[in-house]
Amino acid sequence: MTIVVTVKINDGIVLASDSATTFSDDDGNVVKIYNNANKVFNLVKGLPIGGLTWGAGGIGAASISTITKDLRRRLSGKDPDHLDWALGDNYTVEDVANRVKEFFFDELFRAEFGQEPPPNFFLGFKVCGYSAGAGLPELWDFRIIGNDAVGPRLMRGQDSAGPNWDGEYEAMDRLILGVGSKFKDVLVTEGVPAENVQEAANRVIGQLSVPVVLAAMPIKDAVDLATFMVETTIRFVGFNMRAATVGGPIEVAAITKHEGFKWVQRKLFFSEELNP
């Protein structure tokens, strides 16, 4: 499990995540947790486009981190076998999201698994940032669920602002939406007809949810909010009676119109003095 967060405002979009990656056996029991996985990426260096991943840590032997850097090489025009993938002057974030789907699902996933993926396979990938010449950012979402590709879907258009979170939902669902992830199940057990559960849940969330984002909030406050959301989830899971599958260093990046993709905080496995 993991936590990935975006906070989209008028002045840009913030990406944040934990660093935990979990390995389980065939029965779903946690075998090992590492706390140095990379989940936040600049998809093309020099362009205001970022990515966030959660779910499966790899496809085949390669990690999602390495695969994403392979994709970045293509999008940057540095792969001689795929020069047509290089982003031109009129690229859109939707174009990039579609390339993510084509690369991860149509090419790598199908080559590795064919029509028989591992049980309960799931991979999520968010693409966010600015289309060429755009004044406001966008957020797109792509997922592989079992043997199917879902999306890319536009989650927040240029005129939409707010937080989004995926992976470990419980802490932020309770804090921001006002209900836990099992709320709809409880409605069913309490006698609400199944066909009315979603409507009832929407009504309750509409009254209990807490607005935490103004579209005009400064980018630094969006950074602070995204960091808070990841940190709170890490602490919530850490005190829960379960394996600490959310944790490690928090990584945060901000994408703005004029500054582009900028790291706010990140972990490095090498010394800056030795590798300037």
Rank of each mutant, 00 (worst) to 15 (best):
P80T: 03
V192N: 09
D70T: 11
G12P: 13
P249D: 01
I144T: 07
D141P: 13
T189V: 11
Y169E: 14
T232P: 02
I59G: 03
G191M: 06
P119N: 03
A216E: 15
G135M: 03
I255D: 10
I250E: 00
R235C: 00
R73K: 14
A215P: 15
G157F: 04
G191R: 10
V188H: 00
K182S: 11
V212R: 10
M172N: 15
A194K: 15
I13A: 10
S160Q: 14
E190T: 10
E259P: 08
K39S: 01
D173L: 04
E190F: 07
M229K: 09
I9V: 15
S76V: 04
N10C: 02
G46L: 10
N36V: 01
D89I: 07
K45E: 15
V100C: 13
V252M: 03
F122A: 07
L71M: 14
I67V: 10
V213Y: 07
T68D: 10
F104W: 06
F104L: 15
A56K: 12
G206S: 07
A61M: 08
D79I: 02
E259N: 11
T256G: 14
R153M: 15
A194D: 11
S63R: 04
A37E: 07
R110C: 10
W140V: 12
T66K: 13
R266K: 15
N90V: 11
